[in-house]
Nucleic acid binder design. Sequence first.
DNA 1: TCAAAACCTAGTAAAACGGTAGGTATTATG
DNA 2: CATAATACCTACCGTTTTACTAGGTTTTGA
Lengths: 145, 145
Amino acid sequence: MRLSTKGRYSLEALVMLGFLSQGMHANISLKHISQETEISEGYLEQLFNKLKKSEILISKRGKDGGYQLAKPPSDITIGSIFRSVEGSLSPVKCLDTDCCDRSEFCLTRCFWTEINDEINQVIDTLVLSELIETYRKNLAIGDKS
Amino acid sequence: MRLSTKGRYSLEALVMLGFLSQGMHANISLKHISQETEISEGYLEQLFNKLKKSEILISKRGKDGGYQLAKPPSDITIGSIFRSVEGSLSPVKCLDTDCCDRSEFCLTRCFWTEINDEINQVIDTLVLSELIETYRKNLAIGDKS
DNA sequence: TCAAAACCTAGTAAAACGGTAGGTATTATG
DNA sequence: CATAATACCTACCGTTTTACTAGGTTTTGA
């Protein structure tokens, strides 16, 4: 039931990316995001690679290159981010691979499916723009104090 | 977000135990459960050890010894089973350890808390007796065909 | 041409996973 | 009292995953 750091880091990085590029169409470099989030550049690179393949990010190479969100952040669900970097999110493997041949397993499978659906419902409803907005607000509060 | 086999095995074993001991107060041996579930006896032993500590199981040693549920299965939530064998179920570690000092992290923490609550709500509402019942029904259907 | 960036490949230490092996302690029964 | 069945305990162990790091190549704008 535990997410690895991949999911958490990706989310933090994308929130940061979204925040930094708000309103503009500038490319944000890995270096920049790495500095802001304190996530190592190399590790971030691997995550961003996956996020590119999932069409959550686009990139531009060369000088002044960097990354941008491929879509408006209101179209990017948290679930799509997690699935992109973590692989399947289903609580047990046999939901993915259909490995069972006994009725006991079928029982638990039904049960896992239920849990799985509930989790997916949560993370596929929440959207990146909401988190960016929350971040912006948190930051404003932090500045005042 | 993925559960290891510990959670799945434990659940399967407890459903089986509950099913086998329905109505009676007999002790069910590890060997018996291992045979029915095809989970290795040694591995099962480790899981049952944890489930004992969580007061989900009780045991009796010596000949004719074995395990019983410590409470009626309607009082055993799936969540308590998972937590017993998997440790914390929170999606990210920083929910447990309070490791953050930056506002970004606080943002994500808020978010994780939300997801966490939803997951817990699902697994703490579902109860072992329901799964045993489902198993019993599945078995009946299997017998007919 | 040069510097900054993405892109690519490989390695790696540590932890977790999914067990196995082999013993000790306890208990009902013949 | 001996025995067999059981829980209980400790340790080990191969494999996979995690969370990185290192060191290069390619692209691009100025």
